[in-house]
Design a binder for these strands. Structure first.
Lengths: 109, 109
DNA sequence: TTCATGTATCGGAATTATCCGATGCATCTG
DNA sequence: CAGATGCATCGGATAATTCCGATACATGAA
């Protein structure tokens, strides 16, 4: 991931509706959720939420797959990982000691 | 970190000027850089950049300290770590196996 | 085929972000 | 003290985001 792909991902996650939707999808990996279920959870109009979903998809954070009439949405954990690596990269390379507490916490699981 | 503090952090980092400034500060830890040096690096007007810096500060990603006439800016690695933990939390808790490749990459340093 | 369902996209209104120049304020220098 | 420097904030113009209802389109059911 470079700055050109990190920016859309960060922008996609910087909206409450989209961040909640993405986190909901992460919690529902690997089965995913239909667009309709996400719309219901958001409380927004179907058209409004569809636009938000398109932002997440364009950023590569969500992949979708047609299943009958429904569109199944799934979080792309690889993109999330790449984004986190991008954010951590600079301090890891320049000052590894700064990242130790970061990694210590991340290895919680 | 909760969603209320993650959102401003993500929004702060979702702008090219602010993301670059933050990464520059990370690379200059722990000495920091003066606001003027950051302004020069950004290529923007001093007033415009000052507004961007205020967004990063309000999100807790940058701390500043007065040093004579200058204001020394420093990246807050703890906030960055908290943000990354927040993003990773859901998949770590629900599906630890999803986080293993993520952590494997992060332990590069 | 005809109708209902699930989703994407269009058009437009309201809100918010971004940018700049001008100004204010504190600190250092002479 | 008087001027210069470094930075924050204000006012306002332009651009982007956000939201909704209406509409279009594909799929499945009757």
């Amino acid at each position: 991931m470079n700055i050109g792909s990190a920016l859309p991902a960060l922008a996609a996650l910087s909206h409450p509706t989209r961040l909640e939707a993405f986190r909901l999808l992460v919690r529902h990996e690997p089965e995913g959720l239909s667009t309709g279920e996400l719309v219901d959870a958001s409380g927004l109009t179907q058209s409004t939420f569809s636009t938000h979903l398109a932002v997440l998809a364009k950023a590569g954070l969500v992949k979708s797959e047609k299943q009958g009439r429904q569109q199944i949405q799934r979080a792309d954990i690889d993109t999330l990982r790449d984004l986190m690596l991008f954010l951590a990269k600079d301090c890891c390379q320049g000052h590894p000691e700064l990242c130790e507490p970061l990694l210590a916490e991340l290895t919680c699981c």
